[in-house]
Design a protein around this nucleic acid. Structure first.
Length: 572
RNA sequence: CGGGGUGUAGCUCAGCCUGGUAGAGCACCGCCUUCGGGAGGCGGGGGUCGUAGGUUCAAAUCCUGUCACCCCGACCA
C-alpha cells in the first residue's frame, strides 16, 4: 500500500478526552475517531488491525469445530420476554420500537436468538453437539463508556453458543474452547492468563476469563507462583494462615485512642502490628436474615471482597455500607471505634480473623479500643467465612505455592451455562430412548475490538504502538529518504516495493514528499513492526537498512539477501 | 444515575475574572529555501465562541435553561 493512496491521519498532539494509553495512541495513529460516547468510526488503518484479530479468531474457531453463522443485531422483545431478561436486563439493554409500536432491542448478546434458532432447527440428539459462532457488532448501553474502544457501548464481539445432550459433552466442548482461546491469544502475540471467574449475571456454573496482562487493567488476578491455580481476585479463595492460634497471654485491656480512627493511625500511634488489628465494616443485612445491620470483620491489612460478602445469606445483595448515623443508632459508637467485643449486631469474621489472638479492635465506645483480645476467652467466636480479597503472599487455595497478584484486561470469557436458557425457552431434543430432553448450553465470548486496545496497553513505548507482528496493520514500512530528489532512488524504491509485495509481504510504502523524521515518527506511532530505509548511500553499497520496531539499532542487509532475511524475521 | 469538570478553527489551548465586535501553536492551501528524527520564511483559507433565552447601547465574556463530552463511583467482551 502506498501512503499516497491510503488515508493516514496521524495526530501530533494527544486529544484531550483520551485517558488511557491505548485510547490516546489509537486516536493519534488515526485508527479510530469518536462519533458519540462509546461509539467509534474505525478508520482504514484501525480496521486492518481489527480484521487481523478477527481472522485469527475465525481460523481458530473453525479449527475447534465451531460453525459460523450471523444473527441479527436487532432482536424482537418476545424472545427476551421468554427468557425473562426483558425485565431483568435493565437500562443497559438498548430498547427500540418500530413503526408498528413493536418492541425490539439492539442485541447486547445472543443467547435468546440462538436458543430460538436451535429449538426450531434441532430435534434429535444425533444432531448434537453443535457449536455456533458469529463475529458481530453488539451494543450495551453502559452507564459510563470510557477508555475508547476498551469499554465502548458499540463493540465487535465474537460470541459462540454450544448445545449438548449432557454435561459430559458440554465439558468436552468447554475444554476445546479453552484451548482455542489460548491459541487465539498466543497467535495474537499477547501475554495472557486464563483464570477462574465468577459467572456473574449470565448464570451457569463453571467459567473462565482470559486476561491480557497489563498494569492498566481493570481486573486483578491471583495466580500461584508454583502451580496451575489462577483466578480473578473477585473469586479467589482466601485461606486462613495455617499457624495455630497462640495461647492466651496478656489480659484484654480497654485503651483510650482518641486520635486513632483508622487502622493506619492505630498502628502508627500504638505500635501494634497491622496483622493484629481488625477492621469492622457495617453493611445492610438481608431481609431473610431479619434485616437491620450486620458487621463484617477483616484483618487490618486485608480488604473486604464485596462479591463474596454478597453471597452470604446474612448479607443484603447488592452490598450496601451503612452510614454513620445508622451505625451510631445500632451500635452506639462511630465507625472508627467498632469491634467484635460487646457488639450489639450480628457479626461475621473472615477466616484470617478467626485465627488471631492478642489482637486490637474498636471497643464500640467512641475513642476507645480493646487490645489483647482472645477469641472465646474475651468474646465468643462468631460465624467465620471467606470474605476478603486474597493478597500477594497468601497460600494458593490448591495448596501449591503462594499467590501473586497481577492486573489484567478481560478479553474473553467462557461459561458453562447449563439449562438456564434452554429450559426457559423450551429447547429440547429427543434422546435415544425417544424421550424429550432439555439441551444444556455453553457460551464463549471474545471482545474483538477490545483485544486491539488491550494489545496496545501491553505493547507501546514513548514513540507509539509496538504491534505484535500478527496484529500489525502492515508488516513492513518502506521508507525512501528524499525520493523526490533522486530519480535513481525512486526507481530503486519502486523496484523494492514491487519485489516485497510479490513476495507476499504487507508493505506500507511511504511515497509522500515528507522529511525523513516525519516518516520515522509516523511509522513508529502506528507501530509497523519492521522498517526498511532506502537511501542513495545504501543504494550504492547494495544494502538496505533494517530495523525492528523495538530494536535498539538498525542493521545493513545486503539487497540480494533481503527477501530471505525478512521471510525469516517475519515468520510467525 | 449521583458527585466534579469542560464546551472558542480539524487538533492542543489562550481570551472570560474586569463586556467594546476573536487569537496562538500544530494541521490545511500556494511559493521559496531546507532534507537521516515530527524544518524555516513569506502569503492564504477556515470559527454566527455547544445551544436557546435573558440583562445591556454593546455579550465568547454576566445571568437562566438546555444539550454534549470528560473524570470519580456500581456493570461487563
Amino acid at each position: 500500500m502506498r501512503i499516497s493512496q491510503f488515508p493516514l491521519h496521524t495526530l501530533k498532539e494527544t486529544p484531550a478526552d483520551a485517558e488511557v494509553i491505548s485510547h490516546q495512541l489509537m486516536l493519534r495513529a488515526g485508527m479510530i475517531r469518536k462519533v458519540a460516547a462509546g461509539i467509534y468510526n474505525w478508520l482504514p488503518l484501525g480496521l486492518r488491525v481489527l480484521r487481523k484479530v478477527e481472522d485469527i479468531v475465525r481460523e481458530e474457531m473453525n479449527r475447534a469445530g465451531a460453525i459460523e453463522l450471523l444473527m441479527p443485531a436487532v432482536q424482537p422483545s418476545e424472545l427476551w420476554q421468554e427468557s425473562g431478561r426483558w425485565q431483568q436486563y435493565g437500562p443497559e439493554l438498548l430498547r427500540l420500537r418500530d413503526r408498528h409500536q413493536r418492541d425490539f432491542c439492539f442485541g447486547p448478546t445472543h443467547e435468546e436468538v440462538i436458543t430460538d434458532l436451535v429449538r426450531r432447527e434441532f430435534s434429535s440428539y444425533r444432531q448434537l453437539p453443535v457449536n455456533f459462532y458469529q463475529i458481530q457488532t453488539k451494543f450495551r448501553d453502559e452507564i459510563r463508556p470510557r477508555f475508547g474502544v476498551m469499554r465502548a457501548r458499540e463493540f465487535l464481539m465474537k460470541d459462540a453458543y454450544s448445545f449438548h445432550l449432557d454435561q459430559e459433552s458440554l465439558e468436552q466442548t468447554y475444554q476445546r474452547m479453552h484451548q482455542a482461546y489460548s491459541r487465539i491469544f498466543e497467535r495474537c502475540g499477547l501475554k495472557f492468563r486464563a483464570v477462574r471467574a465468577d459467572s456473574g449475571a449470565i448464570g451457569g456454573a463453571l467459567s473462565h476469563e482470559f486476561m491480557v496482562l497489563a498494569d492498566s487493567g481493570e481486573d486483578a488476578i491471583a495466580f500461584s507462583d508454583a502451580g496451575e491455580y489462577a483466578a480473578n481476585v473477585e473469586l479467589a479463595e482466601a485461606l486462613a494462615p495455617s499457624t495455630p492460634a497462640p495461647a492466651a497471654g496478656e489480659p484484654m485491656q480497654l485503651i483510650d485512642t482518641p486520635e486513632a480512627k483508622t487502622i493506619k493511625e492505630l498502628v502508627e500511634q500504638f505500635g501494634l502490628p497491622v496483622e493484629r488489628t481488625v477492621k469492622t465494616l457495617v453493611v445492610t443485612a438481608a431481609d431473610e436474615a431479619g434485616g437491620g445491620l450486620v458487621a463484617l470483620i477483616v484483618r487490618g491489612d486485608h480488604e473486604l471482597n464485596a462479591i463474596k460478602a454478597e453471597k452470604l445469606p446474612e448479607v443484603a445483595s447488592p452490598l450496601r455500607f451503612a452510614g454513620e448515623e445508622e451505625i451510631r443508632a445500632a451500635v452506639g459508637a462511630g465507625p472508627g471505634s467498632l469491634g467484635p467485643v460487646n457488639l450489639p449486631i450480628p457479626c461475621i469474621v473472615d477466616r484470617s480473623v478467626s485465627v488471631l489472638a492478642n489482637f486490637g479492635a474498636g471497643a464500640n465506645i467512641d475513642d476507645k479500643h480493646y487490645f489483647g483480645i482472645h477469641w472465646e476467652r474475651d468474646v465468643p467466636l462468631p460465624k467465620v467465612a471467606d470474605i476478603r480479597n486474597v493478597i500477594a503472599g497468601d497460600p494458593s487455595p490448591d495448596g501449591v505455592g503462594t499467590l501473586q497478584i497481577a492486573r489484567g484486561i478481560e478479553v474473553g470469557h467462557i461459561f458453562q451455562l447449563g439449562e438456564k436458557y434452554s429450559s426457559a425457552m423450551g429447547a429440547t431434543v429427543l434422546d435415544e430412548a425417544g424421550g424429550s430432553r432439555v439441551v444444556t448450553m455453553g457460551c464463549y465470548g471474545i471482545g474483538v475490538s477490545r483485544v486491539v486496545a488491550a494489545a496496545i496497553e501491553q505493547n507501546y513505548d514513548e514513540r507509539g504502538i509496538c504491534w505484535p507482528s500478527p496484529m500489525a496493520p502492515f508488516q513492513i514500512a518502506l521508507l525512501p529518504m528524499n525520493m523526490h530528489k533522486s530519480e535513481r532512488l525512486r526507481e530503486g524504491a519502486e523496484a523494492l516495493y514491487g519485489e516485497l509485495v510479490a513476495a507476499g509481504f504487507e508493505v506500507l510504502f511511504d511515497d509522500r514528499k515528507v522529511r525523513p523524521g516525519f516518516m520515522f515518527a509516523d511509522m513508529e506511532l502506528i507501530g509497523i513492526p519492521h522498517r526498511l530505509v532506502l537511501a542513495e548511500r545504501a543504494l550504492d553499497a547494495g544494502t538496505v537498512e533494517y530495523r525492528g520496531r523495538t530494536d535498539a539499532d538498525s542493521t545493513e542487509i545486503a539487497r540480494a539477501e533481503l527477501i530471505g532475511f525478512l521471510r525469516e524475521r517475519l515468520a510467525f
